[in-house]
């Protein structure tokens, strides 16, 4: 299937990763398509988080971490010596499982990213903050309390605030590492809807251990099992016609 519209933005080639002696990722290769949602599914401790943390170089700070293989972002090696890691993380943002707003006002939370990248006129910051908060559907809820602390928000609102914070730096790719893991069932659909909506402007990578969630939000899906990428392909195909027996067991809920 070669369509003109499809375009790879990130390619992972023969990625192996270790923490100390323990191998976490075994020979992974796949492509992430521009402006699509790519889901990574699998039982817990399969290496999903390790994998996505390689993609924005967050593992740089992890002790005893080492890897082999290549990760190409727009054709450039992410780990090449002249590549600035902070630049990478600005272009490949991340939203974590647990929403962790900074200890400052809601406004400053969203403005943090633009501020550190050099935006300092209040007119522009105001515009960015409003745009980002509108994008995640939080503007109307928080407009009167922009100077208040994020502690007053519900967990779901905090998570959307964290998404807005990540959007404020205008990344190309946004990684979601189990963004609904801490949310209650009422908040989850909002975040899922947001993910589908963001697809128009961003490339999204979505880690989850809930298969139905992956089926709902993603266009492509990869199934990780004990550090190996067992199967990767269009979500629909992976869920309805899996090629590997383990994938089938997983999507039907027998495994993991």
């Amino acid at each position: 299937m070669k369509s003109e519209k499809k375009q790879s933005i990130l390619s992972i080639r023969k990625l192996n990763a270790w923490y100390g002696d323990r191998q976490i990722l075994i020979n992974l290769s796949f492509e992430v398509q521009r402006r699509q949602v790519t889901a990574l599914i699998g039982p817990s401790n399969s290496g999903k988080s390790t994998l996505v943390r390689c993609l924005n170089r967050l593992n740089d700070f992890t002790l005893n971490f080492r890897f082999t293989g290549e990760i190409l972002f727009k054709g450039r090696d992410l780990y090449a010596s002249m590549v600035d890691a902070t630049e990478v993380r600005m272009q490949i943002g991340m939203v974590f499982r647990k929403p962790i707003p900074f200890r400052c006002s809601i406004y400053e939370n969203v403005a943090y990213g633009p501020r550190i990248s050099g935006v300092n006129t209040s007119v522009r910051l105001d515009a960015i903050v409003e745009k980002s908060l509108r994008r995640v559907g939080l503007w109307d809820e928080v407009e009167p309390i922009l100077d208040g602390t994020p502690d007053e928000l519900s967990i779901g609102q905090q998570q959307r605030l964290c998404i807005a914070r990540a959007l404020a730096v205008e990344p190309d790719i946004l990684i979601f590492d189990e963004p609904c893991g801490e949310l209650d069932p009422m908040e989850t659909p909002k975040v899922e809807a947001l993910v589908r909506n963001l697809k128009a402007d961003y490339t999204l990578i979505f880690v989850t251990n809930k298969r139905r969630q992956a089926a709902r939000v993603s266009d492509f899906a990869g199934f990780l099992y004990c550090g190996e990428l067992i199967e990767f392909g269009a979500t629909e195909k992976l869920f309805t016609n899996p090629q590997d027996i383990r994938t089938e067991q997983y999507v039907t809920g027998k495994l993991g």
Partner: peptide, 9 residues
């Protein structure tokens, strides 16, 4: 089993 991978589980 929450600290183990699928095979260990």
């Amino acid at each position: 089993c929450s600290a183990l991978d699928a095979k260990g589980t």
